[in-house]
Amino acid sequence: MAKKIEYKSEGLLTSFDYKRPSVKFSYWMMIAFLVLCCCIALLPVLWAFLSGFKELAEYYSQTPSLLPESISWKKLWDISIKLRIGPAFINSMILFAGCWVGEIVIGGLAGYTMSRLQPKGSKFLFALMLWTMMMPHTLTMVPMFMTWTDFPLIHINFQNTWIPLWTGSMANIFNILLFKNFFDGIPLSYVESAKLDGCSNLGIFARIMVPLSKPIISTVTVFVFNSTWNNFMGPFLYLKDADMATVALRLYTTSKDWTEPEQMLAAFIVMIPSVIVFAICSKQIMGNNVSVGVKG
């Protein structure tokens, strides 16, 4: 195990540094720090999850116990059956797919255009976007809903379509600025050499920028998945047709008559896909440094 660090060739500290004992010691300090962070992150979540197994009196007790009196896996199984997520899962995936395209393709392209191509006026657009973030958003839900239930000029009610939810994701300013930021940070030398090889702007985007931006794409994918997977208010307002219910909405409508411990277990069951998606994407976020990507 300890051998691993002797071959480390990437990042701030490399095998060269680890020849010094003080650095080696600080490596193990870092591991200790991470273990501490993991405790802070994991223990409360674990405790909340186990609380789901508690009886009502135990759950609301004024002196909360650390562990439930009994952990019955059957309870977990029963609840996951009762949730009947089936078709809702597909709906959630449709929602996610649309939002993903909106945020990654449209947003990513917009970020790239603003960072690299810089058409006239794009700087001003950047400033406008920053200001837009500062504007009051508390009440935007109401006029947005009015817009979608009676769309200007064409007077169409977009309820029970995916369009309002998909469209909303295309204008996630923070993620667009993230993309722009990321592209800003990519060294120019890569682009220059590609240009010399006669690559067009789009070619540069597809062949160099996209492979290089795997970390940021994965990061935003995680964000998109989490927000769409847990988005309950949007589907609640726009998807009134029971056949279109997403998992978050299904969780709400099914479990609102349940007791809180049961709701807690249900919420944790529904969270599993988020963990899986994160596990897959986070592999992309780390472990392939820029230099590696370009050598290929």
Partner: peptide
């Protein structure tokens, strides 16, 4: 280039500036 920005600008207008 502006064509690439168009969908984003459109949603910006629709989902941010319109309500704001």
């Amino acid at each position: 280039m502006w064509l690439l920005l168009l969908p984003m600008v459109f949603t910006l207008i629709l989902c941010h500036w319109n309500p704001i």
